[in-house]
């Protein structure tokens, strides 16, 4: 592996890692506040990407408003999902709520395959700023990749500031640490859960519109995107936005370098196996501390 190639692999890993990270952020927020693993998170991403294509191509709306509108629609869908499906199941255990999110995921996928005029085909919304790749430290980078990495970092910082410095953010954090004590000081956990779902849907929508030009999108893309985002969130420990993004970057770079090392099992054929093994090792190494945390909560 030459130095140029290393840079190329690294940047490629960062791009993929950003995608995983921004999807993972949605998982983290919902999990922290409600302890629900939201299986519909990947579908939010899919909806964001598909809606942006629909609005630009079929409805003819210019790029920037179309992107914002796609995210807004996804947010509304996320909020409706929470109000109709999660909130109404008041007495359900967390595992039942998780099954509800699985049901919602299947439902969204089915709807997406039905309502869009291109049905089940793959689509690609236009690139934000052209497709001429940029030479960067000896590597070539697609302009859209900069958008993806940039969006992830900006979203991470904004989210961090939101959680640290705003009243609502602090309330979310309090709810994540202990719902019982949070409600004692007057924070309504159900309002917080609604905010968490809305935020997660927004994150899903944003990641969808930003990545779709590069990764392409079809009605069935959601599950696998969600799976990778979930892994990123778990490497980060479902804690802070920063930890999740680091988790995503780790996953992306491991996958990318596994292709580059090209020795023994470290080839493209086994890159997912390697990534999952790294995840297992990280979890097992941290298992002592993780068990402690679980007990605390």
């Amino acid at each position: 592996m030459s130095a140029d190639q290393f840079v190329q692999y690294f940047i490629s890993g960062l791009t993929m890692g950003s995608i995983y990270a921004i999807v993972g952020l949605g998982f983290t927020i919902i999990y922290a506040v409600t302890r629900i693993i939201n299986f519909a998170q990947g579908e939010f991403v899919m909806l964001g990407g598909m809606l942006s294509f629909y609005l630009i191509k079929s409805a003819g709306i210019p790029l920037a408003p179309a992107l914002i509108l796609s995210v807004l629609i996804t947010v509304v869908i996320g909020a409706i999902m929470y109000l109709l499906a999660i909130r109404t199941a008041r007495h359900a255990s967390v595992v039942s709520l998780i099954i509800i999110t699985i049901g919602a995921a299947v439902f969204f996928r089915g709807i997406a395959g039905e309502i869009f005029p291109w049905g089940v085909d793959i689509v690609r919304p236009p690139y934000f700023t052209g497709s001429q790749s940029i030479a960067f430290l000896g590597a070539y980078v697609h302009p859209q990749a900069f958008w993806i990495i940039g969006t992830t970092v900006v979203v991470m910082i904004l989210l961090h500031l939101f959680l640290t410095y705003t009243m609502v953010g602090k309330a979310l954090k309090a709810c994540a640490i202990s719902p019982v004590s949070a409600s004692m000081v007057g924070i309504n956990p159900r309002t917080m859960a609604l905010i968490a779902f809305t935020l997660a849907a927004a994150l899903g929508g944003i990641s969808g519109v930003v990545m779709a030009p590069l990764t392409l999108m079809s009605y069935s893309s959601g599950f696998m995107l969600g799976l990778k985002g979930f892994v990123a969130a778990s490497i980060g420990g479902f804690k802070s936005p920063v930890a999740t993004v680091i988790g995503g970057f780790t996953l992306g770079i491991v996958e990318s370098l596994a292709v580059g090392i090209d020795w023994g099992p470290f080839t493209s054929a086994y890159k997912d196996v390697i990534a999952m093994t790294v995840l297992l090792l990280i979890l097992l190494i941290r298992s002592g501390r993780l068990a402690e945390e679980e007990r605390m909560s």
Binding site: A89, A92, S93, I100, I102, G103, V106, F107, F108, G110
Partner: peptide
């Protein structure tokens, strides 16, 4: 036909909402 998975998703949700246990 193609509506199958939509209804499947709906049923999953409804069962869990109305019969959470």
């Amino acid at each position: 036909g193609e509506l199958e998975i939509i209804i499947y998703g709906l049923i999953l949700m409804l069962v869990m909402i109305f019969m959470p246990e």
